[in-house]
Design a protein around this nucleic acid. Sequence first.
DNA 1: CAACGAATTAGAACGATTCTAAAGTGTGAG
DNA 2: CTCACACTTTAGAATCGTTCTAATTCGTTG
Lengths: 143, 143
Amino acid sequence: MAKALREPKTTAAQATARLRHAGLRPTRQRVELAGLLFQNGDRHVTAESLHDEVTTAGVKVSLATVYNTLHQFTEAGLLRQVIVDAARGYFDTNTGDHQHFFLEKEGLLIDIPGESIAVAGVPTPPAGLSVDRVDVVVRVRRN
Amino acid sequence: MAKALREPKTTAAQATARLRHAGLRPTRQRVELAGLLFQNGDRHVTAESLHDEVTTAGVKVSLATVYNTLHQFTEAGLLRQVIVDAARGYFDTNTGDHQHFFLEKEGLLIDIPGESIAVAGVPTPPAGLSVDRVDVVVRVRRN
DNA sequence: CAACGAATTAGAACGATTCTAAAGTGTGAG
DNA sequence: CTCACACTTTAGAATCGTTCTAATTCGTTG
């Protein structure tokens, strides 16, 4: 009963610093979301899942803001969008070189470190095109 | 002016045969769509693009039927769904082992033959999971 | 060619995402 | 420290692709 605050001050401070670095105003909502996203290791979220999480944590943030924030974080290089499912957009806090296992049934993403996987034999793209990125999705199922 | 029919009889006949083989009733709409999809080499379509195409060809098929048909063809193994874009579902008439270049800006998919590309070092999936398929998307941009 | 199950359809419904316009909030100047 | 203003947030409407619904139409088999 001594301490009602949910997050240690350090997390908020770190989140604020990170936002400033990225050129984003550290608003209450952004700090809150950044805290959830970045305080523990790599995470994969959807707008909906993050909104649920922040709401459950007792913080009022609109779904529209969650969408805005995810996109702003992505533009700022703090997040990476992962396209694996036609129905849902995923965001990954791991912005480094890596790939994914995807368990479609449950909407579960699991990182595969970039070093462990290698794609060989990618042909030269047709004239006028250049490679932006190579995404590998290993679709898995429960057995 | 002698010949107003758009498709040679052979195409319709081939399409009909293909549908019968797949255990699908050769209805007017399905024959029409199968004709468009399979008479020339490999193709990538969205429901919308195929609907536009069939409509432009002067045939009346509802969008719902295009969706139904694409899914039925996919279940029957005549098509393969390709997930590259969060906003749109693509269907590929090439059901063999291969990968894709994807030009996001224009929604353009280009096949990469399965033999030319190789993915090495895919880790064993976490316990209880087994690999279903490995998808590689080479995202490209105009330069 | 009748009859029955399968397929098609228009339009409503849906879920995810984006937009809109109005209200609220960081921040830098003074 | 306060104010003003640009930037943010928000609720709710709108939009997009897709799926569903219930009624109609069509292929097939007897």
